[in-house]
Design a protein around this nucleic acid. Sequence first.
DNA 1: TTGTACGCGCTTTTT
DNA 2: GCGCGTACAA
Length: 956
Amino acid sequence: MIVADLHIHSRYSRATARDLDPEHLWIAAQRKGIDLLGSGDFTHPAWFAELSEKLVETGDGAYVLRPDLQGALAGQVPAPCRREVRFLLSAEISSIYKRGGKTRKVHSLILMPDLASVARLNQRLGRLGNIVSDGRPILGLDAKDLLELCLEVEPSVIFIPAHIWTPWFSLFGSKSGFDAIEECFGELTPHIHALETGLSSDPPMNWRLSALDRFTLVSHSDAHSPAKLAREADLLTCPPTYADLAAALAGPAEAGFHGTLEFFPDEGKYHLDGHRKCGVRLTPAETREHGGRCPVCGKPLTVGVLNRVEELADRPEGSKPARLRHFESLIPLPELIGEVMRQGPATKGVSQALEALLERLGPELHILREAPLEDLQSVGGPILGEALRRMRQGQVITEGGYDGEFGKVHLFSNEEHAELKGQKGFWKLAPKAGARSRAKAGPAARPKASPPAAPLLSALDPAREGLNPEQALAADYRGGHLIVRAGPGSGKTRLLVQRAVGLLREGAAAEEILLITFTRKAAGELGQRLAEAWPQGRQPLTATFHALGRRIISQAREGANGGDMAIVEDEKRQALLKRIAAQAEWKPSDLELAISRHKQTLDQEPPSDLAPWLALYQEALAGEGLLDLDDLVREACLALRSDAELARSWRERFRHVLVDEYQDVNQAQVELLKALTGPRTQVAAIGDPDQAIYGFRGADRSFFARFARDFAGAAEFGLQQNYRSNGPILAAAQGLLEADPDPSRRPLLPLRPEGPLPSLIALASPEAEAQWVAARIAELIGGMDSRQVEGRAGENPGEYAPRDIAVLYRLHALAPALQKALQKAGVPVQVAGRTPLEETDPLDFKAQRVSLLTMHAAKGLEWPVVFVVGLEEGLLPYLPPGKPPSPASEERRLLFVALTRARERLYLSRAARRSLFGETRQPGPSPFLTQIPEGLLKIEKPRARRPRASQLGLFK
DNA sequence: TTGTACGCGCTTTTT
DNA sequence: GCGCGTACAA
């Protein structure tokens, strides 16, 4: 029989002991009596390097400490404890992701047969996320995708869902888990053969779920220090090799998996329910009596493992499956000695006593499990003997752990302890009636929890079929042209889709309907939503302005000489601009801008200073039959103007033209629209002039206001209902806009009025700001380490997944500090537009991360939590040194766009010192901040720095 | 053709 | 503060 502890950590994981290195593990394993030990943390590059250096392969998938190191250390192992310690390569990965609208946090234990396969896996994982900052990395990768990746890298991988019952980070966790294994792993479930049951549950609890019958239930220590090794462990009868372990886990008991060594589950940190902050500990039955809420603070209780097991159980307490494996419940020897000596387990006296026992009797597990009581009595005294006798018989007194607080397991009652003082003959006492056996009478199986109340939004959820009244008015209007002023989060895309569907339903042909967007992405999404809403029959054309122009030009040329047409590639165009600019003694960027602006006006005559250079540019393109992107719209307009037949065919083609983001059109685009508009055409434009932020690229929001003049008789509509942001977020965003009065603006009405006030904080430096953001995000995600989860009762830590969060800034230049701080905190992060495609893993698009992006890039997107950073003088509005700034109103709208990306929580920040382009300044707050009316922002102060918590804080 | 020193200038972004 | 482009040397 061998003892295996396969889930441990190295010193590279958070909150772990500094001496967690191969040498100390080798010593500690022998003192404990472990034959087969997980390496832990193989994903961490430094630990991987250390393992590669200090371990040598046995050839059967196991590794041993290098013989020279063994020789140097042998003296530190008590003689009766010495044994061969083999290592298997193991790691734990934390997957934090969104599935089915719920944040999931699942930890997985992974074993690999050799360093080469680990290296392959690490390479893949390194591309998907940050495996450098923590030995237990956090990936925004669905646990199922992680399993798939592991199988792809190494088919013989052993993949074990870790400590499956802990509330915060596990497969069945009450906070962020699933109700069934299949729910998590889908069709890959057959690749899972074992489940790790964790400290807070033991086999009898797990036997109550018939769904677990086919799995091997394993137990490991999840140690964060050498002293905690083998708190729980596996008992194997197979040889200590990788392949034999894999076969044992996959097969019946005879295959080599004998059973487990267990904690008394009551001692686990999450056995019962409760609130640590409120000092409330409840049994599952008591929790039900209180309706799941804390009797002190009224907030939801942290539901423990016992409760969760009862929730999912389909058998009564005490049931046993047909096939079950052996288990033993143990108390760690230092704790047991501590009780006998009436001292803490980490005191010097206990250590000395432990040392003496190890020297005389052998490893800790041998002492706990097998050593004859007489030997124990003779070496450790009669009381120790009695303590071990009681433990082996399960006669213990328990106080269940709850909400992160370890439980307590005692062997003697208080009365006994009192009696014991000064008495020598204690071992003769029979256990008191008060010392209950750990088999407790429990409540009957609990009915399944009722499903959560229907979400508040369901009645008006924009994802559903129906339109709200103001949307319906605009969607159903058939009286001619119309323009819709649609604020952020008002269901704009939905209105477009439903208008198109309504037209189709009334009998309009798909060919008569055209939808126009600015980006291919928007066109793709609109097309997809339309296909979902109107799956029957042909689809209307959904195109960008440029794609539309291209079609028109193609048709014009077919009719004429059929000249070849292609779009100039950017590289070529830049080279051309550079060449001409040099000749003109202009800056290439100025030339580019001037050409573009001219083409957008549709004027025939360019400004005289531009004319010769424009002519050179156009000749160069025409010589190769090329057009640039502005030409696509311009040339289409000109073709329609000069070719009456062409114009007629296009004007008659569409009865309905729907245009998205109308605040972003330029003159050429408006002209193109007009040229497509015949007497029977209805143009429906939708947009929001308060979100016009692309003036610098030629967009002119004034076309929005004059739509009714460009398209005669147009009706005006407005969408005020906001589905996205809660009341306080909308109030702050609209308060800001008040500084730019507009009589045609209507207030936005939040569907969800309640929520926390947006907050504003000033930090000393960009680094401090980045660290603050990282710390806040770590709290919101919860799960960087347990302390963060347990630390802030009432803040709902762990409510969010990485992909629920975005950090927005004015300039890309702010991204590096943020990225660095977030990576250091172990938060999975992606910086928009900054990942080269060739480095992207095929699974990359599935990885879920915190997004870092510019306020511009955030337009059209939304997140439950948004941080807006760098709200400083000179940065917002941005005042480029030596250049004319954008109009302040456009920059204000940019902030408005940023604020209205947030659904639930909004955090604003600034730094009192900022270095930008080599210059360090001490900027005051952005003037826009003072334009947000007082009382709509909560002013926060940086928390005073507390001294770093001790490395061992996790286990007290 | 390649190495290196120097100086300039620095948003936001789509097709 | 740094990257990129240009100028000039080898």
